[in-house]
């Protein structure tokens, strides 16, 4: 099993939430479970909603129409662009870093 990231961009709650919503709208509880499953990071409820608040303010995600007490959130077009840029930047750094780590 891969080691869980404790710091760095792979543990950034905003990036993790955006990545989770890339597969479709989810409510808070589903995001938390999904992030735990694909990244091995457990987001606390307070951390999750602080990150959701920031993402909504930045218009990177938006709440869907009310459906009971748990509102689903979806990725906006701006959010999808932002996520793509962040992941591409991470891939460039990861590729370069891994290449340099490889013995000559």
């Amino acid at each position: 099993m891969a080691r869980k990231p404790k710091t760095g961009p792979a543990s950034d709650p905003e990036l993790l939430i955006l990545s989770s919503l890339a597969s479709g709208p989810k409510h808070g509880y589903a995001i938390m479970g999904d992030v735990e499953a694909f990244a091995g990071v457990t987001l606390g409820p307070g951390t999750l909603y602080t990150a959701i608040t920031r993402l909504v303010e930045k218009k990177l995600i938006a709440p869907e129409s009310d459906s009971g007490r748990q509102r689903p959130y979806r990725l906006t077009a701006q959010g999808a662009t932002d996520l793509t840029e962040q992941l591409n930047a991470m891939r460039r750094v990861a590729t370069a870093g891994l290449r340099r780590l490889r013995p000559a």
Binding site: H27, G44, G46, Y49, T53, R69
Partner: peptide, 28 residues
């Protein structure tokens, strides 16, 4: 008003451990 209902629902659905209380307190 905006997120209180959702957070309450989530907290009610999970065991309220010290780390969760700390996380919510810090973020509040």
């Amino acid at each position: 008003r905006e997120y209180g209902g959702e957070l309450t629902h989530m907290l009610l659905a999970r065991p309220l451990t010290a780390s969760i209380v700390g996380d919510v307190f810090r973020n509040a």
